[in-house]
Each structure stands twice: as structure tokens, then as C-alpha cells.
Amino acid sequence: MSDFFSMYGQMLIRSILIHLKYVLISVSAGFALGLGLGILLSRLPPKFSAVILPILSIFQTVPGIVFIGLLFLWIGMIPATAIIALSVYAMFPVLKNTYTGIEQVPAGYCEAAVGCGMTSMQVLVRVELPLAMPTIIGGLRMSTVYTISWAVLSSMIGLGGLGDFIYQGVSSNNNTLIIAGAIPAAVMAVLAGALIDRVQKKVVPRGLRKEAIR
């Protein structure tokens, strides 16, 4: 055990940090993108979302490795490749949940808000987004947890992260290495999930908690 750490400790820590970096950057970017596009989509007439959402879900089923591979051919072996690919994947759940979250706000609340004299921006910020927040954060949670596991793929194109251990372990048939990559990733996913649950509790007002949707 201590052998392992003296041999790989340094590398493990570096991999965790790189992994974390990829996840943080791409989840933030994906969240911002997903939130923005989701809001935009909800402002458009429903016929747009009727076309766009199915296309997105098809796109989402393209294996991450294919997408990373394509980007790799196009951009090259720089961290941006991994980050762009991961951001795009991180965006999907947030976009979809933002859109459905806003759509699910009962029309009565929006009508009341408009009737009170809110502008459409005020209706969005004061009523629709807060009411959609549990769903949006549910999307963030999903996207974070997924991104942590998808980030493993970035080592496939030589960009490091915990995937290094896993691939090395697989190719050299070394279970210790596989576990050394998998455990930190799993722990990271669990911790991130717990952290987001806490955030969820903080930002969702008491009045919405009972009906909170994952």
C-alpha cells in the first residue's frame, strides 16, 4: 500500500487536481450555457423547442468518446479539447432541466405576476426562475456527477486526469491502478452530489421545498 503511494502518490494527486480542474471549468461553462440557452428556448414559441429538444437528446446519445475524438482531430491535443467536449455534455442536463423547469411553472403564477405589473424580465427573474430552481439544480447535479465520470475520457487523448490510472490499469491488467483511479472519481462524485444538495437546500426557499423535484 505504502509502496503504491510512494510510487504513484505524486501522480495521483496531480491527476485528481487535473480531473477536478476539468470538471469545475466544464461544469461552470456548461451550467452557464445550459441556463442561458434553456431560458432562451423557453422564450421562443413552443414549435422551436419541439424541434430543438429532440435534436439535443439525439446529440446527447453520441458517445462522449466519439465527440472528444472528433474535437481532438479538429483542435488538437490541448486541454481546451477536453474542456469544450465536457462543457457541451455538461450543458445538456442543465439546458433540458432549465427549459422543463420553466415550462412547468403553472400558468396561473405567471398570469398573477403579469397582472401585478411585472415586465417579462421581472416575471422570469422573480417568479419563473425561482420556481424552476429545484429542477435546474437537479440538472446541475446530474451534469456534475456525469462530468466527473466523463472526464475520465480526457486521458484517452493524452490530457491526463484520473483516467490515466484507469487506462493504464486496464492495459497492464493492474487492478490496483484501476481502483486508484476509480475510487477518487467515485468519492468526488459523491461529495459533489452532497455539496449540490446543500446548495439546493440553501437557495430553494422553504415554500418550495416540499414540492422540490430532483
Binding site: 403553472p106 396561473g108 403564477y109 398573477a112 405576476a113 422573480r126 420556481l131
Partner: peptide, 13 residues
Amino acid sequence: YVIQQIGLFPNMT
């Protein structure tokens, strides 16, 4: 303006 049932914003006190 007062409407039936759900008029109050549930995210506000």
C-alpha cells in the same frame, strides 16, 4: 388583481 386559488407566489413569504 386577485385570481382564484393560486395567486400567491410560493417562493415568497
